[in-house]
């Protein structure tokens, strides 16, 4: 565990602020109308620093997934702005948003990450195949080697364990060299060993190649792999810490819960 903490420490506190891979300004997301309206995001401002591993935490229903969906161009804001790199997502139509997701964003979901009819390899290259492009072969080999899937590439998802499936998903997210990888509770369905592996890969990707990753989690131990943690409650950012440990995270969580 400690080694990974040191990985996070590569970017010590007080270092100059990194450029933002994505910016959220005055984000409001409201579901429904009138009496039954739910405000899932309530004027959120947030910068996702490039090349860093950011964890989003908060109690259930605090708006974590909503925030991530809006960041990733899967959902639109009621008010406010999400800028990915230099693109204002709010100004894009469905087609362009889809292209942005395909080319500039990577996803890892909690479950059902893979298309059951495609092999592991086909799933990994899916975004580039959908774009009609061939992925970079060297990079592909490197990613696959890193996540340790070598002999499993020809298998269908049904023939893979949950951990292996999530590794394929991580490989898919990384292989297209996206600007940001979004992961929504990527270890939520895994046993702790598999979960640890996945988190290590993600941390390594940030450390070794400067991949930007945003991960939603409610597990303090998982959040400890991140470089920084943002806390949400009732749709608002209520706290943030850099270089978290499981203990500091738990501590803040308790305070928010109170």
């Amino acid at each position: 565990m400690d080694t990974h903490h040191s990985a996070a420490l590569l970017d010590p506190p007080g270092a100059p602020t990194r450029p933002a891979a994505a910016r959220v300004r005055g984000a409001v997301k409201r579901y429904g109308r009138g009496d039954t309206a739910v405000t899932a995001l309530d004027h959120v401002d947030l910068d996702i620093p490039a090349g860093r591993f950011t964890a989003v935490m908060g109690p259930s229903g605090s708006g974590k997934s909503t925030l991530m969906h809006c960041l990733a161009g899967l959902d639109t804001l009621t008010a406010g702005q999400v800028v990915l790199g230099d693109v204002d997502l709010g100004s894009l139509n469905d087609r362009d948003l889809t292209r942005v997701r395909r080319e500039r964003i990577g996803f890892v979901f909690q479950s059902f990450n893979l298309v059951p009819t495609l092999t592991a390899r086909e799933n990994i290259v899916l975004p580039s195949s959908l774009a009609g492009r061939k992925p970079d072969a060297d990079w592909f080999d490197q990613v696959v080697a890193t996540v340790g899937l070598g002999d499993r590439l020809r298998h269908r998802p049904a023939e893979l364990s949950g951990g292996q499936q999530q590794r394929v998903a991580v490989a898919r997210a990384l292989v297209s060299r996206p600007e940001v990888v979004f992961a929504d509770e990527p270890t939520g369905n895994l046993d702790s060993r598999s979960g640890t592996e996945i988190l290590e890969f993600m941390a390594a990707a940030v450390r070794d190649i400067g991949q930007t990753i945003v991960m939603v989690t409610h597990d303090p131990a998982a959040a400890a792999y991140a470089d920084s943690v943002v806390f949400l409650a009732d749709g608002r950012i209520v706290d943030a810490i850099d270089d978290p440990t499981a203990d500091t995270v738990l501590d803040r969580m308790k305070r928010i819960g109170d």
């Binding site: 087609r95 889809t98 997701r101 996803f107 979901f109 059902f112 298309v115 899916l126 975004p127 959908l130």
Partner: peptide
């Protein structure tokens, strides 16, 4: 449904 959602998320367009 979920599979199609996944495909859409990772970049399949509506027309695709």
């Amino acid at each position: 449904t979920r599979e199609i959602g996944l495909l859409r998320a990772v970049g399949q367009t509506r027309s695709a």
